[in-house]
Nucleic acid binder design. Structure first.
Lengths: 236, 236
DNA sequence: CGGCGGATACTCGTATACGATATGTAAATA
DNA sequence: TATTTACATATCGTATACGAGTATCCGCCG
């Protein structure tokens, strides 16, 4: 495990050390540097960030609450991994929540907001790096939702998005899904521009539903493949 | 601050000490033993539970993630308090989430489940203690939602309910709202018994909406009254 | 008499240290 | 040779300890 590539975050001043730990480890999980199921050794994280294990443990407790890691009694902290079912469940929450956010945001959307969103979509078209793609994707959605002026709703959506984020990135890259995703983004934005609430919500729901189905199918196949392999290995 | 009245929880064996701390403090906040804005002295909590501050801090970090307390840098932990706006926002999340849970639960509802729910409603009718009323109320709703078999959704709803729970209890007792709440519960349960999805969702949404409006009105008046008082005090 | 500055005492945040438990390895036995 | 048991090692969980920042109280000045 090597967190030095995300360590630049350290130079910024954070509210607190546990928050810094949470930020660094969260980013590492999102970028796929830390795989699901992997054990996090607290000493190692502490050493890499130049702090003791106490703030590390507190930061990890926050990530536990976010669902990104799991404390196993006396056996340390594991990076969570999501099954196809769990991904589906998260989307079942995201769809009504993100639709609520978009619905509440729509009355406040200005031309400048639409232009900013367009710029993000153009940037996504040009982007090749997966990590930055993920952030831009989040920015597009959050840029709309933030206009709803509902900080808790926004934070919750952000958290749910973070949970499926690492799988979404694999899926987008492996299935070359970017053009389709961008088409859907522009459908949403067109409806938003016209302040057409039903169309915008329908487009957003479709967008999320497509991603959900794709992800679930992909993860189910993944699991079947793994089961198959281990079955073969056992039967050798 | 005195947590001994909730300390009986200590006798049970918990997965971990931080979880025990979170449980005890959460319950104290919910019961109104700890008021919003109140500072939690870590030494004191630690002493009352017979542990050191490290597991206490970890437990409080979990409550922070749940939104029940807030870490202020170098100034310790405060019990959060919700404004009318924040309560409204939480209900704006609860309504779509709880409707989703109920919708997914409905196909799996059996006669036995309905009977169990009826028993809880009868118990609520007989209940006079506010703390137990809160738990029974949660049990009625959770008892239906759990049938959806969506653990994350259930946990999220539980957390949102916990956040408004303390205000709801005040509101219910002060405004003698129990009979109306029970009427609404029975409306929901009747629709559930008939497996009438639209009716059940509409009844649930009404139930939540009524509580939301009542709470928001109550909290706004509260705040106005406080502002008025402090204004008078200042003008003296 | 009220506002301000400094010293004291708290409380917080975290590094260190230690006991306890899980894991891996090697030896012993069936 | 496979399986089990005992031991060594590593990691965890938390108590203790200490430095640092913050609030409080008292004396001083206006």
């Amino acid at each position: 495990m090597n967190l030095t590539s995300v360590a630049p975050l350290m130079t910024e001043r954070y509210r607190s050390t546990p928050e810094l730990v949470a930020e660094v480890v969260r980013e590492a999980i999102l970028r796929g540097l830390l795989k699901g199921g992997e054990q996090l050794r607290q000493d190692e994280v502490a050493a890499q960030l130049g702090v003791s294990r106490i703030p590390v443990r507190e930061g990890l407790r926050q990530l536990e609450a976010e669902g990104l890691v799991k404390f196993l009694p006396r056996r340390g902290v594991l990076v969570s991994s999501l099954s196809a079912d769990e991904v589906q469940e998260i989307y079942e929450m995201r769809i009504p929540l993100e639709c609520t956010a978009l619905r509440l945001a729509l009355p406040h959307v200005t031309d400048a907001d639409v232009r900013r969103a367009e710029e993000i979509l153009d940037a996504i078209d040009r982007e090749t790096d997966l990590g930055r793609w993920g952030h831009l994707n989040d920015e597009f959605h959050a840029g709309l939702y933030v206009l709803a002026n509902r900080p808790r709703l926004l934070a919750l959506i952000k958290n749910l998005r973070a949970n499926v984020g690492r799988y979404l990135r694999i899926y987008i890259s492996l299935l070359h899904h970017k053009p389709r995703s961008q088409e859907e983004h522009r459908m949403i934005l067109d409806a938003v521009r016209r302040h057409d609430v039903p169309a915008a919500l329908a487009a957003l729901e479709r967008h999320l539903d497509v991603a959900c189905r794709g992800l679930v199918t992909y993860l189910s196949q993944e699991r079947d493949a793994r089961t198959e392999r281990s079955g073969l290995a056992r039967s050798r």
